[in-house]
Design a protein around this nucleic acid. Sequence first.
DNA 1: CATAAATAGTTGTCATACTAATTATTAATG
DNA 2: CATTAATAATTAGTATGACAACTATTTATG
Lengths: 147, 147
Amino acid sequence: MEERYNAYSFLLDRTARRVKQFAQRRFKEMGFNITVDQWLVLKQLYEREQLKQNELAGLVFKDNPTLTRIIDLLCEKGLTERNTHPDDRRCFMVSLTKRGRSKVREMLPSIQEVRLKAWEGLSERDFNQFRRILNKIYENLGDDMQP
Amino acid sequence: MEERYNAYSFLLDRTARRVKQFAQRRFKEMGFNITVDQWLVLKQLYEREQLKQNELAGLVFKDNPTLTRIIDLLCEKGLTERNTHPDDRRCFMVSLTKRGRSKVREMLPSIQEVRLKAWEGLSERDFNQFRRILNKIYENLGDDMQP
DNA sequence: CATAAATAGTTGTCATACTAATTATTAATG
DNA sequence: CATTAATAATTAGTATGACAACTATTTATG
């Protein structure tokens, strides 16, 4: 009976890990020298120019401490920078540096190539089902946190 | 175009994290005082009595260093023990202690209760689809590692 | 306006994940 | 049989993830 809980959370966890691991190894092979999570952040910044760490964290679904550290690393690599917000001294506006933008442009084509492997033998319909189910689970376990 | 890769790996990762987080919070509420990953290991040992760390790592799909640390923690908590293998001094046979077994028996009923929440509004069919797709992705990205 | 509450970000701690390198032991091979 | 391979487990280093506690600043409120 309790098999099912084990089954789904276990499969979910191990597949998520393998996907990330697979992508990470390709990143390494291609000499990208950043992590998959760092890539997600760069990608968002590339699309939206300027973001508060806050907003960025929401977009990539990471918590603030995790994002702080990712931004720290990206700044050390010279790919992003923190600029003070004109009206609110509590927050930073994060943006890509010149090198950050060219990094994203360098990586974009290869990223497209990476994604296909996972979906071999699966259909468009499978993808839609998959997305629907993942989102449903995500919502079911929502962080409702009423105070 | 490359949306899809982002979409699936991103959804997968965030859902997997939320599922683990949800379970972990329930564990905390119930005062279990172990992590979800530690639970997986205890569960396997409960079902199979004695296992080499090696075999255990395979069953829970974790690598050796990760498993070593989980076993370290479980031993510190007095839930597992390492015994020398009679024929092979390289490996340990890991097993539950008395306290480990009663811990598993204490937790089992509540675990069943935890699992349901995630699947609200999803069908048996959904579950099967989900499992099939996860496994397919897992296999597609297999660790083929030919030397 | 003064104080309390909320917000943005950081820091610290512990656990897990992946990689690489190391030790000890056993198995394979010339 | 001696040397090399392979195997089991560990250790070390870096990154992420969750949580709690903290600082600085801004907003709400009485």
